Amino acid sequence: MNQPSRRKVAAGIAWSIPAITVGAAAPAVAASQVSPSINRSFYITRSSSGCSSGSRRLTVDSKNDGTSYYQIVNVSPTSSVTAVYASVDVNLSGLSFTTTTGNWSAVQQDSQTYSYNGVTYYRYFAKLQVAIPAPVNGTITVPSLSWVSNCTASLSNPVSVNGRGMVTINGQDIEQVGPFRTL
């Protein structure tokens, strides 16, 4: 039976030391994570569907279908996610929305107004009412939402809208603001 010489064993040990050193650096790199953020795209439309002649309604969707979604990314499994909100800012007050999914609270109009580029906006928001899903590979996919506004002649004219997402992680509020656009 051939036994390796002490010289071959010593050479093998010497070559393995750098590999162990390189491997030891990996946990330090893994510990430096990117901060959590929101990856969100609400599908907001204005249409006459279901309305009488001359009036329109807004629809806000997040179907998690690739074109409309709401995700929280870079989330550690040990993070405490305590609140998830969805909102849309519209330059029109007095809308009432019906929630067509059971996962969200009733949509409310914020009592505060917001201004952007000299335009006053009214925020309509809802809070997620079901358990917040656990992260999968660092991503929480928020349950879909669907809101439909009342039909009104005020929506016959173009309106400016903006979608937003807000979440509280480990006591810190994180907000993602989409672009303002005209419908």
Rank of each mutant, 00 (worst) to 15 (best):
Pro4Thr: 10
Ser5Thr: 15
Ala10Asn: 12
Ala10Met: 12
Ser16Ala: 14
Ile20His: 11
Gly23Thr: 12
Ala25Asn: 13
Pro27Ala: 15
Ala28Gln: 15
Val29Pro: 03
Ala30Met: 15
Ser32Ile: 14
Gln33Cys: 14
Ser37Glu: 13
Asn39Ala: 08
Ser41Phe: 01
Ile44Ala: 04
Ile44Ser: 06
Ser47Asn: 14
Ser48Lys: 12
Ser49Glu: 13
Gly54Leu: 15
Arg56Val: 09
Arg56Gln: 15
Leu58Met: 13
Asn64Pro: 08
Gly66Glu: 10
Val73Ala: 07
Val73Asn: 08
Asn74Phe: 02
Thr78Asp: 09
Val81Phe: 01
Ser87Glu: 05
Val88Ala: 00
Val90Arg: 01
Asn91Pro: 01
Asn91His: 06
Leu92Asp: 00
Ser96Phe: 03
Thr98Tyr: 05
Thr100Gly: 01
Thr101Met: 05
Thr101Tyr: 06
Asn103Gln: 09
Ser105Ile: 01
Asp110Glu: 03
Gln112Phe: 04
Ser115Leu: 09
Gly118Met: 10
Val119Glu: 06
Arg123Pro: 00
Val130Thr: 15
Ala131Lys: 09
Ile132Met: 07
Ala134Ile: 01
Val142His: 04
Pro143His: 14
Ser144Val: 06
Leu145Ala: 13
Trp147Arg: 10
Trp147Tyr: 05
Val148Ala: 09
Ala153Phe: 00
Ala153Tyr: 02
Ala153Arg: 11
Ala153Asp: 03
Ser156Ala: 10
Ser156Gln: 02
Asn157Val: 02
Val161Cys: 03
Val161Ile: 09
Arg164Lys: 09
Val167Ile: 07
Ile169Asp: 00
Gln172Trp: 01
Asp173Thr: 13
Asp173His: 05
Asp173Leu: 06
Asp173Lys: 06
Glu175Arg: 11
Val177Asp: 09
Gly178Ser: 13
Phe180Gly: 04
Phe180His: 15
Phe180Pro: 03
